[in-house]
Write a protein that binds this DNA or RNA. Sequence first.
DNA 1: ATAATTAAGTCAATATGGTTGACCTTAATT
DNA 2: AATTAAGGTCAACCATATTGACTTAATTAT
Lengths: 168, 168
Amino acid sequence: MVDLNSNIDTIPLREEDLRQGIELLFYAYRDFTSEPDTILNKYDLGRAHHRVIYFVGRNPGITVTELLEILRITKQSLSRVLSHLLETNFINQRADLADRRRKQLTLSDKGKVLEHELTSTQMDRFARAYREAGAEAVEGFRRVLIGIVEPEDRANVRPAAIRAQNRR
Amino acid sequence: MVDLNSNIDTIPLREEDLRQGIELLFYAYRDFTSEPDTILNKYDLGRAHHRVIYFVGRNPGITVTELLEILRITKQSLSRVLSHLLETNFINQRADLADRRRKQLTLSDKGKVLEHELTSTQMDRFARAYREAGAEAVEGFRRVLIGIVEPEDRANVRPAAIRAQNRR
DNA sequence: ATAATTAAGTCAATATGGTTGACCTTAATT
DNA sequence: AATTAAGGTCAACCATATTGACTTAATTAT
């Protein structure tokens, strides 16, 4: 390699590139939540309900404490949203037989239908973006975003098969 | 190429990969806003103030209408936040000489200092992630996230030099 | 067996940031 | 002169978050 500056490790990262990253994350997040928000409106639900439905669907049997760790909100805040989803039968709970203090949350059939309706809009968006960008770009996208996530939480965004192994 | 399925365009995108994208965006956004939130707290400001400070800093002379298009919130909602930033002298406004209804917003010196304090935590996070992932990954990250953003807004996340040309 | 801890839930007060709707002023455009 | 556009304001309301205090039930540790 003749031009040492072509190595990303040696050239200083330009502020412009870093700001572009910040803005990409802002715009992507803004647009990625807008379609689900419209759907949620029909059901008189909000974005907070979506997050709960998503992560319960993704982690069947998850407990309240585990959910709180993912969402990083307070128990009281989750309570309103979760209570409503239980009352309206989008989510079911049953006691953990090994530790009856714990309540395992799962999506009801109705909940699964809604989860799919919400998530499929986001998956469609990702499918299109992945296809247009190509497999290599997708791998880069993953590597960068995993680097943005706090190290303690990186294990949560590994493929589900690997996560299942680490489940207590 | 022997195995046609190794082409991303031919293999169906697995749901697992799409969900990983969704989750990466959720966790990355969550963590990427947490440090600024802590700083904002010291100044009795919130995340909404940060967004205004960021985009005014990034687009000196931006008008209210332009800001609303970026943030996608209502005028009334912006009003409270912006009024407060004007009162506390983080932001200055002056009439556009060509169209005196328009008010051009800029950061004051005090505003620039705060903008830097807030944004530098996010730039540090991106710098580390970019460096760890490498230049190729960064390019992939960009390509995918631009694909997630609505087409109309993709021009906003092009390098500033290019955006400046397109400015009326 | 008792004490301490953990998981879940509840009540209350408060803050932030978003909405809709009605209305006004000023300035530019037709 | 009439219309439109940019900006601003008042009011009511709603969703989602917070802190803090407290309870109940079940498990774990002493």
